[in-house]
Nucleic acid binder design. Structure first.
Lengths: 249, 249
DNA sequence: CAAGCTGTTCGGTTATGCCAAACAGTGTTC
DNA sequence: GAACACTGTTTGGCATAACCGAACAGCTTG
């Protein structure tokens, strides 16, 4: 469905630019002819998906009111929690560990959902908890989605506070660690935030690749063989990828 | 651009339904074949504009994450205030009166922008002011966009408080008055809210016809011939229609 | 005043999106 | 348990509709 695809690209292009785009620029940005770009904009305008400033000449196009409306409906329909929950339940069933869902907020990870494994002894699982970026599975999964510059800036603002003997408190070490997280697709927190607790997190992305959250499994530390850790990591990553897929990839 | 138009209709249809729609239902709702509906959904899904629950059978489609993102960008780009402001400035220039912009909030009109005419003696123009629905130009313009049932329900909740000798305090009279407002396309408040002040308001609509706000001109009451009032009303209505057009019609 | 921009319109050709019907699964029913 | 009814998905062929290039109309620039 070529023209629909191009229309979607037009919307993407419009969203990237501030304060409107001309037909000519848009055609260039999307790699299609002026007339095609014009026709696409014309149709989208009829449905309120794009708007223009009405100027006769040098008319500039923006995203339309209908998108704001559809967007708010989309958020209602597709709250991250609803999408992720079945996958979290499944992940807890597979691993026997507590699963959690978090969204990024100013560098920290805010826990917005959790599925308990039902064990008597529990780690703190209260909703709304804010996890530190540099020493938790969720936090590191989110950090790994940022560039080194962004991580450095964030560390400059909030520091890398000491939590346990395993906490990474050196920026250079952290950056190297995040590089590995990116390669593996999951982040391991081995008693870095609290003694006796370990955790594996992986990031959630929407179809553009932008990070929208992270999931993790958490449990009291047990002595497991190395290959078992890797298997758990792969499971978390696979679940994260599945959720990401359902977010529209 | 037929397929783009249909894609827009698909999105509209998806937004209307809660909790997802099947391909078959969607095809019926939009009046196109199953295969066309499927192809459209498939393309939109690639761009994250729609999402599905991943079930093999009885798969249900919803609005996607990308729409939420685009929608928030749209709100940034197209805040009502920015669109309306130039028109308000022009309206004040044309009429010599104070222009105001309001959005509906629980039946009341909340003033979100104003352009003063620079006169020494001024009516209250503070931003964020809440105007009563039944006795102000802004309020009545918004009321006229509601059905009689909705107006009746609202009046039942908040009543029709007395303000001046001209205030409409009877529901039947108000409904008849609103009928006239709908025909004219603008609402006149002739000293109904405060003695010595009159006001003309008109509603703003987006491309679907849904009411998103209202504009008005306000001034100290002067003795003007009847035809002059009508001319002012037409000017306000025309300005409102122009703004509505720029909102994506 | 013409040259260089805009946004918009117009034909002609091609490919693309449409429909209808067939296919492949799942749940239901007798 | 097998035929059925119902999903979502795939395919083929035809006609339309969407692309491009070029020409047009306004406006600012040199």
């Amino acid at each position: 469905m070529r023209s629909v695809a191009r229309a979607a690209e037009v919307l993407e292009a419009l969203s990237k630019s501030d304060g409107g785009v001309s037909v000519t620029d848009l055609a260039a940005a999307c790699g299609l002819s002026k007339s095609a770009a014009f026709a696409t904009l014309y149709t989208l305008r009829q449905y309120g998906l794009v708007a223009d400033d009405g100027e006769g000449m040098n008319r500039r196009y923006r995203l339309g009111m209908a998108l704001a409306r559809l967007g708010s409906r989309a958020q209602d329909q597709l709250s991250l929690r609803d999408v992720a929950r079945p996958a979290l339940v499944e992940l807890t069933r597979q691993t026997g560990m507590n699963s959690r869902l978090a969204v990024p907020d100013e560098g920290q990870a805010v826990v917005v959902d959790q599925v308990s494994n039902g064990e008597r002894i529990q780690v703190d699982l209260r909703m709304g908890t804010r996890e530190l970026p540099h020493c938790t599975g969720l936090g590191k999964a989110l950090l790994a989605e940022m560039t080194d510059e962004e991580v450095t800036a964030l560390a400059g603002r909030v520091g890398l506070p000491y939590r346990t003997g395993h906490t990474i408190t050196d920026l250079t070490v952290l950056l190297a660690h995040l590089k590995m997280v990116r390669e593996l697709g999951y982040a391991v927190d081995d008693e870095e935030d609290a003694d006796g607790i370990f955790c594996i997190g992986s990031a959630l992305r929407d179809h553009t690749g932008a990070c929208v959250g992270a999931i993790s499994i958490t449990s009291l530390k047990r002595d497991l063989p190395a290959w078992r850790y890797q298997e758990l990591g792969r499971q978390v990553r696979a679940t994260a990828e599945r959720i990401s897929g359902e977010l529209g990839a």
